[in-house]
Amino acid sequence: MLPRFWRKIKHRYNLIATKCENCGTYYYPPRNLCPKCRRKSRIVEVKLSGKGEVLSYSVVHEAPENMKDQKPYVVAMIKLDEGPVITSQLVCDCKEVRRGMRVKAAFRRCGEEGDAGIIYYCTKFVPE
């Protein structure tokens, strides 16, 4: 778990995506090849603005063990302004969330390996 988390720190702390300069499509999670352009792909790394809007959402009432203390909470599909759609926790009042709501990225804890283990940090979203 530790090396797997460490390898993705760059993409978890910031929304570092890839962009195909041939067709202008952004990919998050990043891709090494543009499926549309294939061999003509010209992939570069870019930092996304972290701003977007809620496409759809669920309010989680039956949470996994490590999220029980935060229930009920919102998991939303967020369409970022650059195009990619991300599924993420949206930290807000469950009654406040609605489709089309403007949101922005925030730096939060997303888990920990018990009291003595590593703490995981990541990007979540909050109302803009």
Binding site: Y13, D69, Q70, V91, A106, F107, R108, R109, C110, I119, Y121, K124
Partner: peptide
Amino acid sequence: PALDEDTATIAVEAAR
């Protein structure tokens, strides 16, 4: 602080 906030998240948001 919220359950998913700590000194590191506060420091990051202020620094950003």
